[in-house]
């Protein structure tokens, strides 16, 4: 089976993709690793020098809705592109694609996951495999119910009629409903995965506790280190996720858990130390300073988020404005906004 591994990152988070690539190549040098650049090209991200195969946003072509990079901000776009990238790779000849979201470190061979992928058309990892215990158990479950039952960080698709149809559906939803609005049931691309058990008889649910360990299930996964090997529930830990980890604040587990210190995670603290060292090696400091290429109109003004939403909501009517980034022309979206919604710009100041 011809398998590809894939990830997505904007320029300033490219060090995260590099660290995934470096850790993956230690265990699977044979697997090609593709990273989609959810950003404008930048000199600091040179395809010839990256430890992965860089795919440009433009390289996805017409499969991505026009101006999606205008409709979404940086984080939304990075997540919304997931089904588009997976479909692109399956269409370019790979039999299966395993998506690893940014902030992932591969700690061992992924054979159990790849074997599942050979048997199932879709493979997902639930956030929780058992009810959490302790004082905040119900709260943690409610957070999972609002963020999505499955984690969007490890997702596998094998090319079948079923999985291609699912990817089409997921891409349609991500094209307009990939944002954070948990009160209304939206959590980027991730909550749509909740439908997969209903929609995909060929779904395989990963129950290996060593795959996709993250802050949401860390207390249940009982991390230990034996002879240098990292174990989860006594089994080899193969994929560790550092969702929300900020290398500038290496003492904190995740920006989503500001009260939880790495030092309080027991043996898992060693995994965080290794990840920090890997990020240093991959140049996170240089990357962190890079600008996001689609933050501004071409006259240098920041694009207000409501302006992105409005353009998306206008649908086909937005076509009259042409390129929404181009501010100069008289009939531009920018000049229309200036005239009809001047408050959008005042509120930014």
């Amino acid at each position: 089976m011809n398998i590809a591994i894939a990830s997505i990152a904007s320029n300033r988070r490219m060090a995260l993709a590099r660290s995934t690539a470096v850790s993956l190549s230690l265990h699977h040098p044979e697997l090609p690793f593709f990273v989609l650049q959810a950003d404008a090209p930048h000199a600091a991200v040179d395809p010839a020098r990256e430890p992965f195969r860089l795919l440009s946003y433009a390289g996805l072509g017409a499969a991505v809705p026009q101006w999606l990079h205008f409709h979404y901000g940086e984080q939304e776009l990075t997540y919304a592109l997931t089904p588009f990238l997976l479909r692109h790779l399956l269409e370019t000849g790979f039999d299966a694609v395993l998506f690893l979201k940014q902030e992932t470190m591969v700690l061992g061979r992924l054979d159990p996951l790849l074997e599942m992928l050979a048997r199932h058309s879709v493979v997902l990892t639930p956030h929780l495999l058992e009810p959490p215990r302790g004082r905040q158990a119900r709260l943690r479950e409610l957070n999972v119910l609002r963020a999505g039952i499955f984690n969007g960080g490890v997702v596998g698709f094998r090319r079948t009629a079923e999985s291609l149809a699912l990817l089409d559906w997921w891409a349609r939803r991500c094209a307009c409903l990939c944002r954070l609005d948990v009160e209304n049931g939206l959590h980027f691309e991730q909550r749509w995965l909740d439908f997969f058990p209903s929609l995909a008889p060929g779904l395989g649910i990963v129950r290996d506790p060593g795959i996709n360990v993250g802050h949401w299930n860390l207390p249940e996964r009982r991390i230990e280190i034996r002879n240098g090997q990292i174990l989860a529930c006594g089994l080899p830990c193969r994929i560790f996720r550092f969702s929300g980890y900020d290398p500038a604040r290496p003492g904190t587990v995740s920006r989503y858990r500001p009260d939880w210190q790495v030092a309080d995670t027991g043996p898992a603290a060693e995994v965080f130390r290794r990840y920090q060292a890997l990020l240093e090696q991959c140049g996170w400091r240089e990357c962190a300073g890079l600008p996001y290429g689609w933050d501004l109109f071409d006259n240098g003004e920041p694009i207000p988020l409501p302006a992105r939403r409005l353009h998306s909501a206008l649908g086909e009517a937005a076509a009259q404005f042409g390129d929404p980034f181009a501010a100069g022309a008289p009939g531009s979206y920018y000049s229309w906004l200036r005239k009809n919604h001047p408050r959008l710009f005042r509120e930014l100041r």
Partner: peptide, 10 residues
């Protein structure tokens, strides 16, 4: 008690 959000749930 604060929430414990996942993946961007702040």
């Amino acid at each position: 008690q604060q929430g414990l959000p996942l993946e961007g749930l702040r």
